[in-house]
């Protein structure tokens, strides 16, 4: 399904999906004649994490609650930053280095609001949307990322 097809009535595009995110279709979905500024953030899989070579990231969600929280964030951002449209889409499953993890997009009459909104959206997503990532390292082990906690469940991989 093309992302533009699920542009919500409120002018928001949100979701979690196993399929690769089509960044340009999110961009198109948030564009509007009344918006002179469109800002888009694209989060991708980095090849290093705290000095360790990463081979892939695995994302898991509580899908229903994640969709609900993404919707809520998009609506809150629209209100808070007076956006025209807003997009927030997260990928799930196993992603290789360089693949797109998340896209946050905002359109507004002027650029300041769009910049601020995108930063807020991605910060909030990391805090409240029930999605988790597991880092798979090139040497074969894997670990769930736990922000703010040193304890880690390291598991050897065969």
């Amino acid at each position: 399904m093309g992302i533009a097809e699920f542009l919500g009535k409120e002018g928001t595009v949100t979701g979690v999906q196993e399929a690769p995110i089509d960044v340009l279709s999110v961009l198109e979905a948030v564009r509007d004649p009344s918006a002179g500024a469109v800002v888009i953030f694209v989060g991708t899989v980095r090849d290093l994490s705290e000095g360790r070579a990463v081979s892939s990231l695995e994302f898991e969600a509580a899908p229903e609650m994640a969709r609900h929280q993404l919707d809520l964030l998009a609506l809150q951002a629209k209100e808070r930053f007076q956006l025209v449209r807003c997009g927030l889409v997260h990928r799930l499953g196993r992603l290789e280095v360089g693949e797109v993890i998340v896209v946050a997009a905002a359109s507004a009459p002027h650029r300041r609001a769009a910049f601020d909104a995108v930063e807020w959206l991605i910060d909030q997503l990391k805090r409240v949307v029930p999605i988790w990532k597991k880092e798979h390292y090139q040497e074969g082990s894997a670990r769930w990322v736990d922000p703010g906690c040193e304890m880690a469940s390291e598991e050897p991989k065969g």
């Binding site: 994302f59 509580a62 997260h90 999605i131 988790w132 769930w144 990322v145």
Partner: peptide
């Protein structure tokens, strides 16, 4: 109920 660790998406 859902039970899960703190979010680490993005």
């Amino acid at each position: 109920l859902l039970c899960f660790p703190p979010a680490s998406g993005g």
